[in-house]
Amino acid sequence: MQDDSAAERILIVAHELIKRFSWSGNTITAVNGISFRVETGEVFGLLGPNGAGKTTTLRMVMGLLRPDEGYAEVDGIRTGPDSAGVRSKIGLVSTNDGVYPWLSVREMMFYFADLYSIPPHVATERLDNLCDMLQLHQFVDQRCSTLSTGQRQRVILARGLMHDPPVMLLDEPTRGLDVVGSQTVFEFIAHLKAQGKAVVLSTHRLDEAERVCDRFGLVHRGQLIHVGTLRNLQEVTGKQHLTDMFLAMISGSLNEPLGQAAS
């Protein structure tokens, strides 16, 4: 892991991803040509309103969904529903993630370690570190059904790191969390960044994104409207805050197409 973080390299590539969903005759293009790259130690914020196509994009990067066009690569390997090889390199934490109510936190962690073929002694050590980092010690042997929302979220974050992936995909990790909970998540992201992981964070909480992300992609209706650092975006849009850019983007697309200065 240390070697990976030393070398600056591109870990995540999304290239012209297109995904259409169709049912009973209607076709909806959920993602329409999204491209971005994320390097080691970089946090990329995928920002957009609900239904913009963020989750679908992440799923295609993850390999859960097969893109209709374009491709995604993680660490130079194409992802897709059939590519099991690349999956151990990706950690996923999503809004909808749950826990096993009848298992203890420790049992659940070891289960995921087994899913990723991590030898038990390595798993024990790693769980210890994660407990330190996310303060799980006091409830690590409790059944998951007894955990509070914040504790659950920490368990899920820890679960995503159990196999120590170089790439982390976070899909709305702060939804439903209070200030303290969100703070834990952002500390977690900072930690990931320090470890040199490539992180994609999808969220609609712009204030939070502004604090932790190195670069941003503003997604609207399946398209990346703007990509760049906060300063880039400020220059392009002439707005100071993400929220304003966002509102401009949404209203702009309603009236006239905003300059598609993406990438």
Binding site: M62, G63, L64, A84, G85, R87, S88, I90, L92, S94, N96, D97, G98, V99, Y100, P101, F112, L115, Y116, S117, R159
Partner: peptide, 13 residues
């Protein structure tokens, strides 16, 4: 229903 399915499917197993 528990929301653990996705985590299972994304694992290499």
């Amino acid at each position: 229903e528990r929301g653990t399915m996705e985590a299972l499917i994304v694992s290499p197993t």
